[in-house]
Each structure stands twice: as structure tokens, then as C-alpha cells.
Design a protein around this nucleic acid. Structure first.
Lengths: 186, 186, 186, 186
DNA sequence: AATGAATGAGACTTCATTCAT
DNA sequence: TATGAATGAAGTCTCATTCAT
């Protein structure tokens, strides 16, 4: 394990804590203790706790989207890739004990003025939406408009599967969403 | 305006604050101040902040489900009622500026040991699920199993529409979910 | 020594520290440590550090003015009382090692938004000014206008004596001011 | 606009901040940010924050005394020059919104061990005192002793006018001090 | 049944200074 | 000469809960 710089150690530690324990449940002191960093060092790299959360979400976005695309890459058709997205949810969420989506989790119980965090959530969800649209737009039998409409429906299913599996601590919502997705994709 | 008892005043005040400002953002002091109640009086009626949240969720469950059923009551067929459920989401969520679902919001960023709150979320979601199932089971052309499967798919769409409209601060996810629901219902 | 309540202990401790060590040099932690009070108890009684300073200044105002009036009370004429005011400065300031005036000290290096503290300083200085005026207005040979003009001149001498004795750590400015006051009073 | 060296930039920036915002309110980081200087560079030129304050006070002393002397230079007699000193206070203090005297401000709320700063305040006030004395010593009708006594009285009036105008945020104390000075000067 | 004072533990943030390059 | 990362200590303030009356 190679030695990380202070900033990376902070992001990594905070990411674990924010995702697994929650943003409000994670204090600055816990982050610096576990990262082995002085408090003022942390505030050299991040102006506020919210900024750490932004860094966490940015980093997570890159790896999450990358993992998703890797997961579905061995599927041949775009439709198959989209169906496989639900298998990705399954493998991901069961591996984190249905802890749910980092962006959903952080956005639902947030002080009203934390706009930078909200922005990250919107960016993340938009990127996923655009990716879904792009896969469908390459399909011959769909107009651009149809592709976007169908894509949005799949996006809703993905979101619903994530949040409901988190509440139920069970994978059935993912399976249900996958089945519904298959129906909608014909 | 009739005078409320202490306990009711606490629940009512806390409900507003928990839903609109968030559970972690709402302090005990704010609740008792706005409710006009002494602190120790509050702790006479509720063992902890978590218990207030449980009372809030119980009360909200009753009124939310009741509002939903009222909203769809003028629809004739059960299928129409289910479609109208998405219109209910629309009217509800736009009226609260897309603040989202009280149970989703409270469950996503919660200390790990708050099981009583988690239980309420599960109860709420199960009741909605059972209600959807029951409407479909009355439909002649569906087997019980088909009714449950289809119902679960609708439930996923409802959940996805709520959370995504909250993130996007927009109603489009609700419209999309409604369109998808219509397709699935044939 | 009778046992003081928490609030009084806080004010008393803070008063000592604010006056002798300075407002900015005195931390909340030092106050609660020396007062033997929990931090949250302090914030129950005072909304902020600034509010403690206001309480300190209010209490100090009462005792300072009272001490001044006691000190000069054995003088017969009002002119003699005013002259004796400079002797009061002498005895007071030498007893506190020329630490200077609590209001001057706190107002000169203060964050810009501490208006409540500034208000207290203005109130204090105005009360002293009014007292000086009132003594002179009772003098037969002065019109009201002359009394106010002469009084203001004495007030300036008092202020100048205080601040300069503090900088010089010496009583000569007080003696000089007294001599000038005698001249102005004829 | 000529380019300043690092040290001068630091002093200039710190001077603005110390005088206008206060010594305790001005942080090292703000100084280096606004001066555009690296932190360690600053500590190369100054051993501590206190040393920057000393440099600030030294530079301010030169310019302040010089401005005063320029202001009164067109007066013919020394008595007129001294009277005009109060006009200088007026023009200076109103131009800085009655921010008061840099030395008074920094000395009143200072950690106890900042002797170098205290020394600067004493030096400054002594220089002013000596200047006042020197003007009066040149007057034919005063003995050296009378000149010093009268000079000290004027000094007290100057000090009192400065601090009281700062507290009152008003020029009346300056006018009053000027009137008293005229009386004392006969 | 009801009060509000008191609490210990923690929240987030900033301080002036030093170190390693 | 110059840099900016890193630090320990301290800053002000808030948390949910309990105690004494």
C-alpha cells in the first residue's frame, strides 16, 4: 500500500465515513483522527466540511460511473448493457449491505444552504441520465425522442430500485426494476 | 383554533421541522421553543428525539395514505386509481417544493442504531405496497402473482419518481414515471 | 463568601478576565474553567461572548459610577466634587496598575459588528457626561449652556487622563488633567 | 505605481488591516494573502506578528507626525500651530470615520507580554509630547517649566479628544478640546 | 404534571508558527 | 530567497439528555 498524501488521505477517509456512516453522523474530528492529520492541515486543503463532501462526491462519481461501464462492457448490445445495469446495482448494493446511493443519502437530510453538495448530486444524476440516453440513441429502431423518453423511464427504475432496496435492506426491488426495464425495452 | 395538548403540540411542531428542515437539522431546543413546551415536559412524553421521530412518522403515515386514497377515490377503475397515484405525487411534491419523502429523507442519513425509525420506514413502504397489490388483485385479468409483480413495479416507479424529483427539483420524473406506469399496466 | 449562582459566577469571572486581560485575550474556555461552569450552562445564560461582555459592562457601569459618586460625596461644593473626580481616577487607576478604562479598552480593538458592546460604551460615557453637566448646572454663576460647555471640557480631560496614564503606566497625566480642570473651573 | 519589495508590501498591507480592522481581528493569513507573499517569506522578514505591528507603528509614527507638522506649518505663531493641531485631529479622524489612534487602539487589548508594541506606543506619545513642549518653549512669555506644564495639559486634551470622538463617532469632542485648549493658552 | 437550569461531549473553524523543500 | 504544506492549541458555539425543584 503506497503512502498517500495528506489531501488524499482526507478524501479517502472522509469518503468511507460519509458513505457508510452518513454526512451528518461524521464529524471533522473523526475524519482527522482516522486520517492521521492535524485539523488545520485539513482546513488548508478544504475550506469547509461541505467542500470535503464535494471532493468525496466528485471522486465517487468518477469511480462509480467507471465501475458501471466496466460492469456492462462485456454485453454486446446497448439494450443488454442497460439491462445489465440492474445487475450492477445488485452486485454493488449487496456488497455495501444496501447502504444506498451516496448522492441520495447526502441530499435528503442536508442544511438548506449546502448548494455545492446539491449541485454534485444533480451533476451525477445527469451524467447517468445522459449515459442511458446515449446508449438508446444508438439503437436503430428508436427516434431520438423515443430514446430519451425510454431512457428516462429506465433512470426512474434505477433510482427507485436503489432507494427501496436501501429501505428494505433487500435485493427484491432491484430484481423488480430489472423486470420492469425488460418490459419497457420490449 | 382548538387548543392542542402538550404531546400533540410537540408532534405537530416536530413534524413540520423534521420534514421541512430535516431530522439532523432540527434540534430539541427548536422543537420545544416552537411548541412552547418545557424541556422536561417533552422528555416526559418522549424518551428521546428518536421517539419523537417515530411519532412523527406514524402520524404522517396515516395522513399521507389517507390523502393518497382520497385523491384517487374519484377514479372508477383500480388501474385508473393507480395511474392517478402519480398525479397525487405531482400535487403533493410540487406543494412542498419537491422536499421528497419523509421516510426516505430520514432514513438515508441516520445514526446506525436508530432501529425504531427504520422500522417505521419499512412499515410505511410496506403499507403502500400492500395497497397497490390490493388494487391490482381485484382486477379480473390478473392472477395474484401477476398482481404482486406488477404492483411491485409500480412501487419502484413511485419511489424513483419521488427521489429523483427531489434531486432535480422538478416534476419531470413524476411524469416519466406515470408514462412508464401506463405502459406496464398495458 | 456566599455562594453565587451560575450566572453571577460567569459575569464575575468574565469581568475580572475581560478587564484585566482584555476581551480578545479572554476565551470562553478560560471563563468557564475559572467559573467552574459547563460550557452549555454558560450559553444557556448568554447567547454569545459578546453578550457576556455586555453584562460585564452593565454591571461595571453601575459600580464604577457609584464608586465615583461615593468618592466625591464628602466634598461640599459641586466644583470640589468635580475636582475630586480626578482624585478618584488616581486612586482607581493606581489600584489597577493603570489598566485603564474598561470601555475604552474593549472598544478600541473590536470586530466591526459588535454593536451591543459599542452601545454600552456610549451609554457609559454619556452617563458620566450627564453627571458632570448636572453638577455644573447647579452652580449659580453658570448658564445651562456654559455648564454644558465647561462640563464637556472636563469630560475630555478625564478621558485623556485615563488613556494616557494607561499608556505611560504613570499617574502624571491624571495630575496634569486635574490642574487643567482647576484652571478651567476658574 | 512603483513595485514594492516584499517587506514593504507586508508592512503596507498589515498597516491598513491593523489600523482599520484591529490587531486582534487581523490574522497572519489575511496579511500574506492581501500582500501576495508566501507565509515563510513573511517569517523571514518578521520574527512574529508582534514584530509586524512594531514596523507598522514605526512607519505610522513617521507619517503621522509629519502630516501633523505639515498641517500646522502655515500657521505663524506656535500658539496658532498648537490650536491648529486640533483641526488636524478633526480632518484626520473624520477621514477615517473616527477609527481613533492606532497606538491607543493596539495597546488597550493586548496580551500582557507584548512589550515591544507597548514601547512603540510610549515612544509615539512621548514624541508628540516633546513636540508640543518645544513649541511652547519658544514662546517668550513662558518659563521652561510653565511650557512643559501647559504642554502636558494640551496633550491630555488631544488624547481625550481622540478617544472620545472614537467612542461617540462624532467630532464634538475635538471641538470641545480645541475650545479648552484656547482657554488654557489664554 | 410540569419546569428550566445544568451538564459532558462534541460540533466546525481559525490561530500564529515551524518545517521540509 | 522563497515557498506552501503541516502543525498543536485554542477559538466560539450546539448537541441530546438529566437533575433538582
Amino acid at each position: 500500500m503506497k503512502k498517500l498524501g495528506v489531501k488524499d488521505r482526507i478524501i479517502e477517509t472522509a469518503s468511507d465515513l460519509f458513505y457508510n456512516n452518513g454526512y451528518n453522523q461524521t464529524g471533522i474530528n473523526q475524519i482527522i483522527d482516522e486520517a492521521g492529520v492535524a485539523k488545520a492541515s485539513m482546513y488548508m486543503h478544504f475550506r469547509s466540511k461541505e467542500d470535503i463532501a464535494v471532493a468525496y462526491l466528485k471522486r465517487r462519481h468518477i469511480s462509480w460511473v467507471s465501475d458501471l461501464q466496466d460492469f456492462v462492457s462485456n454485453q454486446i448490445t446497448n439494450r443488454e448493457k442497460l439491462i445489465a445495469s440492474f445487475d450492477y446495482l445488485d452486485s454493488w448494493l449487496s456488497s455495501v449491505n444496501y447502504r444506498g446511493c451516496g448522492w441520495q443519502n447526502i441530499i435528503t437530510d442536508l442544511p438548506h444552504d449546502h448548494d455545492k453538495i446539491r449541485d454534485q448530486a444533480v451533476l451525477h444524476k445527469n451524467d447517468v441520465r445522459v449515459w442511458v440516453h446515449s446508449l438508446l440513441k444508438d439503437e436503430d429502431n428508436l427516434s431520438d425522442n423515443e430514446a430519451m423518453q425510454l431512457g428516462d423511464e429506465l433512470v426512474i427504475l434505477l433510482e427507485g430500485a436503489i432507494i427501496l432496496s436501501q429501505i428494505q435492506k433487500n435485493k427484491w426491488p432491484i430484481e423488480v426494476a430489472k423486470r420492469a426495464a425488460k418490459k419497457l425495452l420490449k
